[in-house]
């Protein structure tokens, strides 16, 4: 299993919103430039530990953050 996953969002504001929601829940969320092969909706994406993907998705949906998708980050 990949170590990290990336949350793809539509706007930089969504990325910051996601970062804030996840950090408030003490999750190690980090903003990274969106890997080009994963899309171009927004220049920034949120990198999270892959093992926390489900929890992150749940938190973000509850907070009302729009996200495009969460994908494993293969490095």
């Amino acid at each position: 299993m990949a170590e990290f996953a990336v949350i793809l969002v539509y706007t930089t504001t969504d990325a910051i919103f996601a970062e804030r929601v996840l950090r408030r829940a003490d999750l190690a969320a980090k903003l990274i430039p969106t890997p080009r092969h994963l899309g171009s909706d927004c220049g920034s994406a949120v990198r999270i530990p892959a093992s926390e993907s489900e929890r992150c998705e749940e938190l973000l949906r509850t907070a009302g953050v729009s996200l495009s998708r969460i994908v494993p980050l293969n490095t």
Partner: peptide, 16 residues
């Protein structure tokens, strides 16, 4: 919103 480097992200945090 334009770049994804730390200063651009910090500016977005301020706006947020």
């Amino acid at each position: 919103g334009r770049s994804a480097h730390r200063l651009s992200l910090e500016a977005e945090r301020i706006r947020f």
